[in-house]
Amino acid sequence: MQYRTGRARRAVVIAVLGTAVLGAAPPAFAGPPATGPSVAESPAQSGAVQRSLGLEGARNARDIGGYPTADGAVVRSGLVFRTDALDRLTPSDLARLESSNVTVVDDLRTTYERALAPDRLPAGAAGNWYDVLGQSPIAALVDMPAAYRAFVTGPGANEAFSAVLHDIAASDGAVIYHCSAGKDRTGWATAVLLTILGVPRDTVTADYLLSNTYRGADPEHPGLDGVDQAWLDIAFDTAVATYGSFDAYVSEGLKLSEGDITELKSRLLD
């Protein structure tokens, strides 16, 4: 009997995960919810309707703009989009992204995810690959708390998230970053970016939890198709435990200089 090598065994595990960190390919999505909340409802609920990109082939695609910061600024819309995988984009989806001046697409998935579901990119956009979890132990791919700790401590993870932030700071157009489900690796990248910009933690968490709305997961029992606030808290707690503070995580872990942070704020805040 022949036994698989460690690398081949890892490939099989990743390929059959379906959901969890990698996320199963969702059914086609025809846009944001048909009915929305009134303006009297919470910002998180209002955002669930207003920030969707309305892509047919990526139901968890949304704009991170519009959130207020603690010091009264507002994150600009139309510059940074967080999405799920782009392999199911329709011609109209691609045209919409092209008209939104998307010039950079950063893919946070593993080699095997990319092979199973190659991105479709809008015309004129450059694609980059920053593998967050490909060098982490298998446990980080099948156990959600382990995955969120690996977002901070896993080999290659800091470099991947750092590259996304540097792309956003340097781009002269709109930037997309994504994983498979657009909820975990993408969720942490968004939480880090919004926190750097000064968006309060409760708003950051609300944006993270919107993946349950767009992916149709039960917020009380999200399972592998949704997200849980406890997972996001694990990543924040791991950053503080590892580096002493979130700011130190940004400067020492992600290697963002004061100049980088100033550039992000200058580009993304009104």
Rank of each mutant, 00 (worst) to 15 (best):
M1C: 04
Q2D: 11
G6M: 05
G6D: 11
R7H: 13
A8V: 11
R9E: 15
V13C: 03
V13S: 06
I14F: 04
A15V: 02
G18D: 14
L22Q: 12
P26M: 10
P27C: 02
A28I: 14
G31Q: 05
G36Q: 05
G36H: 11
G36I: 04
P37G: 01
S38N: 12
A40G: 13
E41H: 09
E41P: 03
S42R: 04
P43L: 02
Q45C: 07
A48G: 15
A48T: 05
V49P: 01
S52F: 02
L55Q: 04
G57C: 10
A58F: 02
R59P: 10
I64F: 00
G65K: 00
G65R: 00
G66P: 00
Y67A: 00
P68T: 01
P68I: 01
A70S: 06
G72I: 07
V74R: 14
S77N: 02
G78T: 00
F81H: 00
R82C: 03
T83A: 07
D84I: 01
R88K: 15
L89C: 11
D93T: 05
L94E: 15
E98T: 13
S100H: 07
N101Q: 12
T103C: 04
V105H: 02
R109N: 03
T110L: 11
Y112Q: 14
R120L: 15
L121K: 07
A123T: 15
G127I: 03
D131S: 14
G134L: 10
S136W: 06
I138P: 05
A140F: 09
L141F: 10
V142W: 03
T153Y: 04
G154N: 02
P155I: 08
A157Q: 10
A157H: 12
N158L: 12
F161E: 01
V164K: 00
V164F: 03
H166C: 13
A169Y: 06
A169G: 15
A170E: 15
S171V: 09
V175G: 10
Y177H: 15
C179W: 09
S180C: 10
A181Y: 08
R185H: 13
T186R: 08
T186I: 09
T190Q: 09
L193A: 02
L194G: 00
T195G: 05
I196S: 11
I196P: 09
G198L: 10
D202Y: 11
L209V: 09
L209C: 13
L209T: 06
L209N: 13
L210Q: 03
N212K: 08
R215K: 07
G216T: 10
A217F: 08
A217I: 08
D218F: 04
H221E: 14
D225A: 12
D225R: 12
D228L: 11
Q229Y: 05
W231R: 03
W231P: 02
D237E: 15
V240C: 13
T242C: 11
T242L: 10
Y243T: 10
Y243R: 08
G244L: 05
A248V: 06
E252R: 12
G253N: 06
G253Y: 07
L254G: 01
L254M: 03
L256Y: 05
G259R: 12
I261H: 08
S266E: 14
L268W: 00
